[in-house]
Design a protein around this nucleic acid. Structure first.
Length: 212
DNA sequence: TATTGGGGTAGAG
DNA sequence: CTCTACCCCAATA
C-alpha cells in the first residue's frame, strides 16, 4: 500500500523530484508546474500525484504506525552519498522489534524512505521543528536523529554546491554555465547538482500544536 | 593509509 | 528543544 507511484518513478526522477520539492516550497504558486519542469516526461499532474502519494505514505506511517517499507528488499542499493550505496552496517535486520544485544549504538543508516519522509516533513513544518518532523514525518527517528541527519544533509548540499563553483575563479559573476549545462544526465549521480537547500523563511504553519 | 561519508553524542544557547 | 562542534566508524580513493 505504501509507496506506489502512478507511473514508474526511477531513482533519478525521485531525486529530481525531491530537489524540486525543496527548491519550490509549498508557497510556490504553480508549484507542480515548476517542479514538472525539472522532470522530463512528467506532467504537473504526475508530480502532484507523486507528492500526494508520498504525503499519504507519511500520514499512513504516522497514523497506523506502519513501519517503513521493507528496507531489506533493496535490490538497488540506495546511494545517498556513496555511489556504491552499501551505506553502513546493516547489522542484523532490526525489523520488528529491535534486539538490543550488546551492540553499540552504531548507526542506522537512513534509507531513502526516511530521507524522503524527512524532506516532506521539512517542507511541511520548516527547518527548525525537528520534533514535529520526527513526530509526523519520520516517526522512526527522534528529533535528535532528524537534526543530525539534517545537519549532514544540508552540509552536503552546501558542500556540493560550493564545490561546483569552487574551481571557478573565472566565474566572477558567473555566467550561464552554472545554470544548466554541466550536468547532462544527473540521473543516478549523487554528485549531481543539488542547489539551494535553504528552507523558506516562513516558519510554516503548525497545523498541529503538540509539544513534546 | 588518507580522505570522505554518515550517524551519534556532547556541549552551549 | 535546537544549534553547533566533535568523535567514531565504515567505505572508498
Amino acid at each position: 500500500m505504501i509507496r506506489n507511484s502512478s507511473s514508474s518513478w526511477s531513482r533519478g526522477e525521485d531525486k529530481l523530484f525531491e530537489r524540486a520539492l525543496v527548491l519550490f516550497p509549498d508557497e510556490t504558486p504553480r508549484r507542480w508546474e515548476k517542479i514538472a519542469t525539472q522532470l522530463p516526461g512528467k506532467t504537473w499532474f504526475d508530480v502532484k500525484k507523486h507528492y500526494d502519494d508520498l504525503v499519504y505514505d507519511v500520514e499512513e506511517i504516522d497514523s497506523g504506525r506502519v513501519e517503513p517499507p521493507s528496507y531489506g528488499d533493496d535490490q538497488f542499493n540506495s546511494s545517498w552519498g556513496s555511489e556504491s550505496g552499501t551505506s553502513q552496517v546493516w547489522f542484523g535486520s532490526n525489523k520488528g522489534k529491535e534486539k538490543e544485544s550488546s551492540e553499540r549504538k552504531k548507526g542506522v543508516p537512513w534509507t531513502e524512505e526516511e530521507h524522503r519522509l524527512f524532506l516532506i516533513g521539512l517542507q511541511r513544518y520548516g527547518k527548525g521543528d525537528w520534533r514535529s518532523i520526527s513526530r509526523n514525518a519520520v516517526v522512526s527517528r527522534t528529533p535528535t536523529q532528524v537534526a543530525s541527519h539534517a545537519q549532514k544533509y544540508f552540509l552536503r548540499l552546501n558542500s556540493v554546491k560550493k564545490d561546483k563553483k569552487r574551481p571557478s575563479i573565472h566565474d566572477i559573476t558567473s555566467s550561464a554555465k552554472s545554470s544548466m549545462g554541466n550536468w547532462t544526465n544527473e540521473f543516478m549521480d549523487p554528485t549531481a547538482t543539488y542547489d539551494d537547500p535553504e528552507s523558506p523563511p516562513s516558519s510554516d504553519f503548525h497545523a498541529f500544536g503538540f509539544q513534546m
